[in-house]
């Protein structure tokens, strides 16, 4: 199982050819209380760095970008009823969607946990 991180503060975890994507703890902390998450539809094709989802706090809406090319195969329906899951468990129950990857080698362009930690500390 490989977990990678983007500079846009998404995490992506690949298991059996399907990648689970969410936002990092750092991201949820800077966004504050999350009140609504708009997820893509299953079957939607995503392009790396293109719009994938929208996350809204009390104050503002923020875009979530696709960390890699691929296609949505599942979305976290729980977030509709309980968007606060993103604050409580951003890198577990607060996941956003699952996608198949067009090109697994794109994962190499993302940061591993240690590199992401260093990246965040430098912000």
């Amino acid at each position: 199982m490989t977990k990678k991180f983007s500079q846009e503060h998404e995490w992506i975890e690949l298991e059996d050819g399907v990648a689970t994507v969410g936002i990092t703890d750092y991201a949820q902390q800077s966004l504050g209380d999350i009140v609504y998450v708009e997820l893509p539809e299953v079957g939607k094709k995503l392009t790396k760095d293109g719009d994938a989802a929208v996350v809204e706090s009390v104050k503002a809406a923020s875009d979530v970008y696709a960390p890699l090319d691929g296609e949505i195969v599942e979305i976290n329906e729980e977030l509709d009823a309980n968007p606060g899951l993103v604050n409580e468990a951003p890198e577990a129950e607060g996941w956003f969607f699952k996608m198949t990857l067009s090109d697994e080698s794109q994962l190499d362009e993302l940061m591993d946990e240690a590199a992401y930690k260093e990246f965040v500390e430098g912000l």
């Binding site: 504050g32 009140v35 706090s57 009390v58």
Partner: peptide, 12 residues
């Protein structure tokens, strides 16, 4: 101050 550690929702 836009918010304190309690957060916007909690403060509200």
């Amino acid at each position: 101050p836009v918010q304190y550690p309690l957060g916007v929702k909690g403060e509200h």
